[in-house]
Nucleic acid binder design. Sequence first.
DNA 1: ATTGAAAGAGTCTCAGT
DNA 2: ACTGAGACTCTTTCAAT
Lengths: 154, 154
Amino acid sequence: MKFNLDKLDFQIIQEMMENAEISYADLGKKLFVSGGTIHVRIKKLQEFGIVKGTKLNVDLKSLGYDVIAFIGIYLEKSSLYDSVAKELRKIPQIVRLNYTTGNYSMFAEIVCKDIQQLRFVLHDELQKIKGIERTETFISLDESFSRNVLVSSE
Amino acid sequence: MKFNLDKLDFQIIQEMMENAEISYADLGKKLFVSGGTIHVRIKKLQEFGIVKGTKLNVDLKSLGYDVIAFIGIYLEKSSLYDSVAKELRKIPQIVRLNYTTGNYSMFAEIVCKDIQQLRFVLHDELQKIKGIERTETFISLDESFSRNVLVSSE
DNA sequence: ATTGAAAGAGTCTCAGT
DNA sequence: ACTGAGACTCTTTCAAT
């Protein structure tokens, strides 16, 4: 760890990773300090670059984005990573891309409105990209859980 | 889509998925409506359950959580899904679990402080869980990008 | 449905401890 | 380093359109 964070800092991060709407006064009550102290700590965490902002928590399912899938990508040559990544970034349904060890060269996550859209991306868009040897798709039938990591000083 | 959302609703969602800190007045300026209108729309989106709250955007790398990996899990029987999911949930480093089609029965994402911790989870904790036949691990060497889906009415 | 203004709540600063 | 109070800003409500 690069910074000297204490238990209170971690408690604030943990709490606000789940719910960033809580007021400083209320969070202070919960953690037995004043709202002013919460404020000072959050300012410090922002200065350190640990807290980068807040994001809206949106229920994608209710917006019709039902289909989540993971794609393992085999490249012809691993040197093609950057150029393939650049092409994959152009596909808005692909929300995440990691360069990985193991079977696959890259690992992508894709969010679609329906199976037809997923098929279109897999069949039409990915096939056009030079350097992709083949792909394996894992469609999520159920998200068992999704949560934040447990932060602490150890 | 279950709801009647217009362009403005989607613009608000898109903007605030990236930055939920912006004030209603400022967001209104950006989208050429009053702050009051932004407020009404967000209230509506909350009532619909589309907006579920806000989350702190934390830089896990700077907190020392450097190691992200994906784990493909083979089960002995797919009926063991629930009991294995229950055990995996007890491991705090596992932040996400999906039940998937394809090669693997389940797909997990894990966040660790170092390779030693990852090895401990993979070798000691996962091996203890009854019903897991074997696992394949893909360590992320680089996150090329991670972003929100592009929402719209179509 | 949108607006603008007033009331209420929260953030931010700072002097005191 | 924490606190509490005052200044300031944002959210929330509401009457008018």
